[in-house]
Simulated assay, not measured.
Amino acid sequence: MVVSATNSSADVLDSRLLPGTQLLENFAKLFAEQDVVSAMVNSFLIAVGTTVLSLLLCSIAGYGFEVFHSRAKDAVLAILLLAMMIPFAATMIPLFELFANAGLVNSLIAVIVPTIATPFLILLFRQATRSFPHEIIEAARIDGVSEVGIFARIYMPTMRSTYAAAAVITFMTAWNNFLWPRVILINNDVQTMPLLISNLSAGYVTDYGVLMLAVLLASLPTMVIFLVLQRAFAAGITGAIK
């Protein structure tokens, strides 16, 4: 991908394995044909907004399912497990009608809202909460700390590794999301990076050097996020609490 971004389309089709001299030309052509800055900003806003809201809502849900047991909550959890089996294509048309009736077509809010509470993240936080020492919760309650205070001041700092793992997964998923943005974002002025890349390969003639450069630019944010949080990601996936 990196090598292809420095070559012309003809060199890419010829399977050239050495870096070329077309990087600046590919940059100029990409930014001349597509609004890359706007697409990067839109993708960043969607990814960050989805990540922040998902971590907050899903951690609260996972904490509640594990700490406050009841038959009703177990039934809701079973429904969430069943919801994981429903493909997104089955709910895409009703979702579009819902946001169209609300006047939110071509808005970033319509991309963020359907993805802020996923069964996977709820189950991830619920399983991680099982290893959380409940004696700390009882001690805090005896000391008069409210449930909100316990969650914000004790639970969240202790579960940093789980939050980091969930942040990496959610950010990468939101950044690379293609199908739903393609459906709900009709105008190019609100397109994301995956949509921009799709537009580059949708014509009769594809410039593969420019295409690979766009893919490289779209890959950088997720690579940086993962490299920065990789240790916490590994610890969060294994459920470690320090």
Rank of each mutant, 00 (worst) to 15 (best):
A83G: 07
D74R: 10
A75Y: 04
Y63P: 05
L23W: 15
L45M: 10
T50R: 00
T50D: 01
A102Y: 14
A89C: 00
T115F: 15
Y63K: 09
L77D: 14
L24V: 14
A110R: 08
N42R: 13
A47H: 06
L77T: 11
L81F: 10
S107W: 09
F88H: 09
E33M: 10
C58K: 11
V36C: 04
V48L: 07
L108F: 08
G64M: 13
T21I: 13
A39P: 12
L82K: 14
S43K: 02
F27N: 05
A83N: 12
A47F: 08
N106L: 06
Q34A: 14
L80W: 09
S54Q: 08
F99Y: 13
S38I: 00
I79R: 13
L104T: 09
E97P: 00
I86D: 08
L104E: 12
S43V: 11
T51Q: 01
S38M: 12
I79F: 14
I122K: 07
L82T: 11
L77Y: 14
I93T: 12
D35V: 03
S70C: 02
M40K: 07
Y63G: 10
L53H: 00
A78F: 15
T50H: 01
T91H: 02
L55T: 13
D74Y: 13
A61W: 06
V105A: 01
S38G: 14
I122A: 05
S70R: 08
F88E: 03
V41K: 10
V52D: 01
P114Y: 06
A100T: 05
L57A: 11
N106Y: 05
A28D: 14
I86K: 02
I122H: 07
V36F: 11
P119Y: 12
V113H: 02
Y63S: 01
F120S: 03
I79K: 06
L55S: 08
L95F: 12
F99R: 02
A39F: 13
T118G: 07
L24K: 14
S43H: 10
Q22I: 04
Y63R: 08
Q34W: 15
V52F: 01
V37F: 15
L121R: 02
I109R: 03
V105L: 14
T118R: 13
I109P: 03
I86P: 00
A32P: 03
Q34R: 13
E66I: 06
L80I: 10
I86H: 03
L45K: 04
T118A: 13
G62H: 03
A28V: 13
K29S: 14
L108T: 11
A89R: 14
V48T: 09
F68P: 04
S43I: 00
I79V: 11
T118S: 15
F88K: 06
L57H: 03
L108C: 02
G62S: 06
I79W: 08
V52N: 01
L53M: 08
A90P: 01
G64W: 06
T51I: 02
F96E: 07
A72V: 05
P119A: 12
V111I: 04
H69C: 07
S43E: 06
F31M: 01
I86W: 00
A78E: 09
D74E: 15
A32G: 09
T50G: 09
A61P: 07
A32C: 06
M84T: 10
G62P: 02
P114W: 01
I116N: 02
T115V: 05
L121E: 12
A102D: 07
F27G: 05
